[in-house]
Design a protein around this nucleic acid. Structure first.
Lengths: 248, 248
DNA sequence: GAATCATCATGATCCAGATCATGTTCGGGC
DNA sequence: GCCCGAACATGATCTGGATCATGATGATTC
């Protein structure tokens, strides 16, 4: 089942049996990629999109010095470059962070789906808009939060996304990212990420070691990062909800 | 013609005559809004989307103190909350910056279009993904550019978008934003925006006064903001192209 | 089991942009 | 023609995070 986690626990878009079957049938191939491998580069014409089955992948832009700004990370269940179907080329690079497995869906299949099944097509559209909603939360993070808030917000978001995918219990999850990755996500230096992680650890909000994140106080962490999971459109998000607390 | 500027000059999505007629027919109403009015709030269920005919509008998130981070601005021709069709509710607020005119399109019409005309539906999808591509460029801006670079990048982007819409000659355009608006867009304080604008003026890169932006040296401005218009998918973008120059 | 490389850790110094304060300019209302 | 508020302008000071430097830890390879 390639589509098991796709749009799982998202409001208003549970896949019907027949839709799931149709989507499964659209997969032409399954591929494995090593860690830190580029999958697609900005500007290349693309003819297929990929559903992430296992691993963590990233999308990023780089500046003139080659420093990266990650614009998205993807977890299992994400259709990571579905936007290449309408756009035909991408405006950014796509790469693995950890070793990953992807299911390939040719654009011709998506074309067929959009003619045959408008309702399923709308769910695919929805999936790309969920990514856009996450972009907006990242904009808020970079524009309005300080370093500690950014890391706290990111950890809460990742917890929530993995929870929706069935890969977090709401407090504890595997996440094989380095402090340098967090820096590229949060627009900080690795040095500063290191100091922030220590602070979060010392305050008992969150411990991140050996590729395992353990949130000690979700409510405090969410308050620190001004995190509210609404933008993720998660169904049954009770374990993620926190009382709103004043900032700091 | 409400749709005159919609997707104008974008690669691979020029509207066919019949598609344009269909979209025009989907408009149920035209509304005028005063400056600085909220159009929609996060979380409200929506049943229509709006095509911006005239004026500048914004989408924003606010933090616990009520400080705004703009996540998008919209210019004439933009379908500003089309993403509310698949998502049903929004994750952010929408408001006018200047007095604006919008054409209202009920979601029921978009539903009908996606069943009748998959090709037009794909173009609507494309329009929402263009917004997502702009979000990504904004992430790069906030994560990797300094204050001067952010303002330079924003001015280049706005020039390019207005150029595509036929509202800039590629160097000069009307833009009724305040320095406080620029601050909320670029994650800066108004005080600092003021200093940056003076610097750009003194260096001859760009003058912004009396709601008119005049770019003195597009190539230098683009270099300063590391701006490359590729992510806007503009067709015939020659007047916007600049030789790539090393940063600074 | 020595060498190598990625990752994590931590101290010292510096600076871009925030913050605080104080004008000035200009257009609209009465 | 004066009042008033929004927008623009500019100086003085402070600070969060960058930068530079150095070392510890731990996994992998030969």
């Amino acid at each position: 089942m390639f589509t098991e986690r796709f749009l799982r626990n998202r409001r208003g878009v549970s896949l019907e049996k027949a839709e799931r079957v149709r989507l499964e049938a659209a997969v032409s191939e399954v591929r494995s990629l090593g860690a830190r491998k580029t999958m697609a580069r900005a500007g290349e014409p693309l003819h297929e999109s990929n559903l992430l089955i296992d691993g963590i992948m990233s999308r990023y832009l780089d500046d003139r010095q080659g420093l990266r700004q990650l614009v998205a990370i993807h977890v299992p269940g994400d259709f990571l470059d579905l936007h290449s179907f309408p756009l035909k080329t991408l405006d950014h690079d796509v790469a693995t962070l950890t070793a990953s497995t992807i299911a390939v869906v040719p654009h011709s299949e998506i074309d067929a789906i959009s003619a045959e099944r408008p309702a399923l097509a709308r769910k695919l559209w929805y999936a790309t808009l969920l990514d856009a909603a996450i972009h907006r939360a990242w904009l808020f993070r970079l524009g309005r939060l300080d370093a500690t808030g950014r890391i706290a917000h990111f950890l809460c978001e990742t917890n929530a996304r993995l929870f929706a995918a069935g890969l977090s219990d709401g407090r504890r999850f595997a996440l094989a990212l380095t402090q340098a990755d967090l820096a590229e996500i949060c627009g900080l230096t690795t040095v500063h990420v290191n100091r922030v992680m220590r602070q979060l650890r010392e305050e008992g909000l969150c411990v991140f070691r050996a590729s395992l994140v353990e949130i000690g106080d979700l409510e405090a962490l969410a308050a620190r990062g001004q995190f509210d999971p609404g933008y993720l459109y998660i169904e049954n998000d009770e374990p993620l909800r926190t009382r709103k607390r004043p900032f700091r």
